[in-house]
Simulated assay, not measured.
Amino acid sequence: MKHRTLGQAHTPVAALGLGCMGMSEFYGASDDTQSLHTLQRALELGINFWDTADTYGFGHNESLLGRFIAQSGPALRQQLVVATKFGIVRQEGQYERRIDNTPAYIRSACEASLRRLQVDTIDLYYCHRRNPEVPMEEMVGAMAELVQAGKVRQIGLSEVSAGSLRKASAVHPIAAVQSEYSLWAREPEQEMLQTCAELGTSFVAYSPLGRAFLTGTLDTTALASNDFRKILPRINGDAEAANRLLVEALGRFAEVRGATNAQIALAWLLHKHPHVIPIPGTRRITYLEQNAAATDITLSAADVAELDQMFAPDKVAGARYPDAGMVGIE
């Protein structure tokens, strides 16, 4: 597995990370045994950058990773770079949320995450969503105190504006910004990617496969009742029909090059910017192995330009999230 570096500390991480959210929530039923096997295979492939959050499965996702870390021993812990997040507060059975960035909440959320993960230190601790009612200096100051206390190694922000990143960086170095970035979610290209490069901040791309829609294998009519993709505007109604045409064009591009849609979508991200680290999520070893192979795919400048044009933002239909999901996104 090829490597990239994380933040100003230049922490080496796999060029592709692993998004663990779907092992606990949002994508229908999951199986802990299957997920634990997938985590083991990820390590064997060299995928050592794992992403979770306290809100995923209401703590279940962190606890799942904690089980794996505890049973695997201290040598494995040294290999892993574990990222988790605070800030989204939800009630079980509800998608709606409120955002809490207060210092007291940050401290208590960190302690809870440390317990569930069964670690002494969180490698990368993100503010999951911003609440503008809490001054940036106050929130980042509280996160910096966690670094000083040895509970967190580096800090990050998720779904913030370039202006917020600059303001936060004036308080404490920001190792990473995590936001949605993929062929059909290009907003970071407007300003954020350049700002990250200037500040030495890594950009972690979540949902790089468009929540599986870009793979061309997603049957939206067969989604489980508790799969949150059933409410996503981009893959429902007329928007889905329009976007399906883009995915079909991607499939033809990939077939000519002997690759899958997913591999091309990930290779495109890796070729766009050296400070971007995609974190595709999966529960299945088969998809994990296919995704890992994307790091060996070479795209020419012409290939990248063709994909850029194929998925030009004005060709993509529908919003990324329903209104409730946009809370805290700058």
Rank of each mutant, 00 (worst) to 15 (best):
M1Y: 09
T5Q: 01
G7M: 03
G7N: 07
A9F: 08
T11D: 04
L18C: 07
M23D: 10
G28E: 07
G28V: 03
A29F: 03
T33L: 09
H37P: 02
T38W: 03
R41N: 01
E44G: 15
L45F: 10
G46M: 09
F49N: 01
A53G: 09
D54P: 07
F58K: 07
G59S: 06
H60V: 13
N61V: 00
F68P: 03
A70Y: 09
Q71I: 10
Q71V: 09
Q71P: 00
Q79G: 07
A83H: 03
F86E: 02
G87D: 12
R90W: 14
Q94C: 12
R97Q: 15
R98I: 14
D100F: 13
N101S: 15
P103C: 06
S108F: 11
S108P: 07
C110V: 08
E111K: 13
L117F: 04
Q118N: 12
V119F: 05
V119G: 02
D120F: 01
T121M: 04
D123A: 01
D123T: 01
R130F: 10
P135S: 06
P135V: 02
P135T: 07
E137G: 05
M143Q: 14
L146F: 12
G150I: 00
V152C: 04
R153N: 09
V160F: 02
V160N: 01
S161H: 06
G163Q: 08
S164V: 11
L165I: 02
K167I: 06
S179G: 13
E180F: 06
W184H: 10
R186T: 13
E189L: 05
E191P: 12
L193Q: 06
T195E: 10
T195N: 03
C196Y: 06
V204Q: 04
R211W: 10
F213Y: 11
L214I: 14
G216A: 12
G216E: 12
L218P: 15
T220A: 12
T221W: 08
N226Q: 14
N226L: 09
L232R: 12
R234K: 14
I235T: 08
N236K: 14
D238G: 09
A239D: 15
R244A: 09
L245P: 01
L245V: 15
L246E: 00
A249I: 03
L250T: 01
G251F: 04
R252I: 00
A254D: 00
G258H: 05
G258C: 10
N261P: 06
A262M: 03
I264V: 14
L266C: 08
W268P: 04
I279D: 07
T282N: 13
R284Q: 15
T286D: 13
L288K: 12
L288M: 10
Q290H: 11
N291G: 08
N291V: 06
A292C: 13
I297N: 02
T298H: 13
T298L: 14
L299T: 05
A301N: 04
V304C: 12
V304G: 00
P313R: 02
P313M: 11
V316K: 07
V316C: 03
A319G: 12
R320N: 11
D323V: 14
V327E: 12
I329K: 03
